[in-house]
């Protein structure tokens, strides 16, 4: 990527209960420490467990932007759940958008009930590719389950984001660990760092 836009608009999306808010908080805190001006807009509350949950991050070198990304202006979508990665494109996608997505579905209630179908993963990824300028994947839920705690998938996703080495959203392991230490009890750190490292190592561009 050439000169990064200011603000760089990043959406972290997923399903309620996946730790979306914590992920955006850690990324934001790490960047503020590096001298960035960060605004994060969060949607949760009634959109709690089971609903679609989105955080908007506006990363800037110069000013405090509003907490909502305008229509069609996402630069990067980080999807904790693949269907949610696609859903974001309806309002925020554009031909230049990059996507990093977890590949493990969480079935919406209508899919569970048999009233709707979850798309094939290959189809979903191909559509994401068609709608943007690049798609990266990581099986973050598998990493988290192997660490015996599905909630760690958000940290694996942050590791994968770090692995993309974007100048517009830089996240070093040190910054991640520092921000993590500010927000979580010390005993939780090793497992979160392990998920981060594995996420980083498992990043795949398709």
């Amino acid at each position: 990527m050439s000169a990064a836009p200011d603000p760089f608009n990043l959406i972290i999306t997923g399903v309620g209960g996946q730790g979306n808010v914590l992920a955006s908080q850690i990324l934001g805190q790490a960047l503020v420490r590096q001298g960035w001006v960060v605004t994060v807009g969060e949607t949760y509350g009634a959109s709690q467990r089971g609903g679609s949950v989105m955080s908007h991050l506006r990363l800037s070198r110069r000013k405090q932007w509003s907490p909502l990304i305008p229509e069609g202006q996402a630069h990067l979508v980080v999807g904790l759940e693949p269907l949610e990665s696609l859903r974001v494109m309806a309002r925020y996608g554009n031909p230049g958008v990059l996507t990093l997505t977890n590949t493990r579905p969480i079935h919406p209630l209508d899919v569970i009930a048999g009233a709707a179908e979850y798309p094939e993963m290959d189809t979903l990824l191909a559509k994401l590719k068609k709608l943007g300028a690049g798609v990266w994947t990581v099986d973050a839920t598998r990493i988290a389950l192997e660490l015996d705690n599905p909630i760690l998938s958000n940290m694996a996703m942050l590791g994968a984001l770090a692995g993309m080495e974007l100048a517009a959203a830089p996240l070093s392991r040190e910054d991640f660990a520092e921000a993590l230490g500010m927000l979580l009890p010390a005993k939780a750190l090793p497992a979160n760092l392990e998920a981060f490292d594995q996420g980083r190592a498992s990043l795949r561009e398709i």
């Binding site: 399903v15 009634a46 959109s47 709690q48 467990r49 089971g50 609903g51 679609s52 269907l83 949610e84 696609l86 859903r87 309806a90 919406p108 209630l109 209508d110 899919v111 009233a115 709707a116 179908e117 979850y118 798309p119 189809t123 979903l124 559509k127």
Partner: peptide, 9 residues
């Protein structure tokens, strides 16, 4: 392709 994700318990 993307069924609505209804809120639930």
């Amino acid at each position: 392709l993307a069924p609505v994700r209804q809120l639930g318990l």
